[in-house]
């Protein structure tokens, strides 16, 4: 068993879990934070994207033990004081989802890409958003409204 301590959405957590526990399992099954979805379990779909020490990663492809000591933000941690994060509002306003299964990963990837492009002073064009979404798969929307949502949010963030 691995003793795992980390900060999740600003709260310190500590659990003893099997060494094979994935970060996605840790979040969903041990912390009951089921907003992080597992779509493919083969590192391709991106529904499980969370932020680990400020970077978007696929939580199904990281061990919980490997995230010991890290600061993790999940979809549940984006809203502040009951107010949605601008990325969440933008997905709502632009109908950036249909079934919603991929949405947590889309939003976490969206927040990450906007932050990176802003930090580097680069323009997040529509083409760049589509390229950045390489690792996030949506099987309903055809991506158009997801791209629009991220563009809209980038202007608000």
């Amino acid at each position: 068993m691995a003793q795992v301590s980390m900060t999740v959405n600003g709260k310190a957590v500590k659990r003893s879990v099997p060494d094979t526990t994935l970060l996605s399992e840790f979040l969903r099954e041990h912390l009951r934070l089921t907003g992080t979805h597992v779509g493919c379990d083969t590192s391709q779909c991106g529904a499980c994207v969370v932020h680990v020490d400020g970077r978007a990663v696929k939580s199904c492809t990281m061990l919980a033990a490997g995230a010991d000591g890290a600061s993790v933000v999940t979809i549940e941690g984006l809203a502040k004081d009951g107010a949605l994060h601008p990325m969440q509002t933008a997905f709502n306003d632009n109908h950036g989802l249909q079934c919603g299964f991929c949405t947590p990963g889309m939003i976490m990837s969206g927040v990450d890409m906007v932050a990176r492009y802003k930090a580097e002073g680069r323009e997040l064009t529509e083409a760049a958003i589509r390229h950045e979404l390489e690792g996030n798969i949506c099987r309903c929307t055809g991506y158009h409204n997801i791209v629009k949502s991220i563009q809209d949010a980038a202007a608000r963030m």
């Binding site: 991106g46 970077r55 978007a56 990663v57 696929k58 492809t61 990837s109 950045e132 690792g135």
Partner: peptide, 8 residues
Amino acid sequence: GDPAVRHM
């Protein structure tokens, strides 16, 4: 890969 893969 993709951005999340490149982070790890």
